[in-house]
Design a protein around this nucleic acid. Structure first.
Lengths: 109, 109
DNA sequence: AAACAGTACCTTGTATTACAAGACATGTAT
DNA sequence: ATACATGTCTTGTAATACAAGGTACTGTTT
């Protein structure tokens, strides 16, 4: 039990939420997402992201299309589906509630 | 992939943080913790809590003593250790950082 | 005393998921 | 050709919340 593992555990589940938000803003491919997450100090590696994207796609929360790159291999550009948008709304509520609960517990004297 | 599971995943890792906070405030036993978490709308069941308390104890972040109850079986009253207090401080920072990162991502237009 | 109910602690098995450490395939530059 | 960068994906491992039980102690009712 160490801080590093706990950080991973805390981040768990939040990634799905953040990824959906990023995709909801417009078409992006994996490296775009990693860049944005990294900029926000939310570290994620490829081995985490790709399976997560596949889960989202299998759940019909996102869709993708192949786009040829001008230099390099083709990319999968993801967009959010209607179902994904609805799901994201419930996640927003879940997150607000969770922050609220945690605030309540951790700020008590 | 459903909201209920995602809520569980989001809560994952936060429990350890919240439990440590509750114990840090004074001696409590399991039912006290469940009551406080439930009041704060952070659901947790016994099958989750007991293994978590054991992990914390094995990591020397908390300690406990048996206390006879006036009615019913004896209780394990937990307190936080010095090491636990230090650990909790790093978790506070981790949480702040995580909230900040999430805020950054989810509020972007 | 025997049976029951309430309280408190704990365990086993399952599902989920982040990560490490790779593999593979495409395009560009040397 | 060879090397490098880019992009997608897979396998195996570890961690942990939960469901669904079990065990043990105490007091109450029959």
């Amino acid at each position: 039990m160490n801080a590093s593992n706990t950080q991973i555990q805390m981040r768990k589940g939040l990634l799905e939420f953040c990824i959906l938000h990023i995709i909801a803003r417009g078409e992006v491919y994996a490296s775009d997402m990693i860049e944005e997450l990294t900029d926000a100090k939310m570290i994620v590696v490829e081995g985490t992201l790709y399976p997560l994207l596949n889960r989202l796609k299998n759940a019909a929360l996102v869709s993708y299309k192949w786009v040829e790159s001008e230099s390099g291999p083709p990319r999968k550009y993801y967009s959010i589906t209607e179902e994904g948008s609805r799901f994201l709304e419930t996640l927003n509520e879940t997150w607000d509630s969770l922050v609220n609960s945690t605030q309540l517990i951790t700020s008590k004297k």
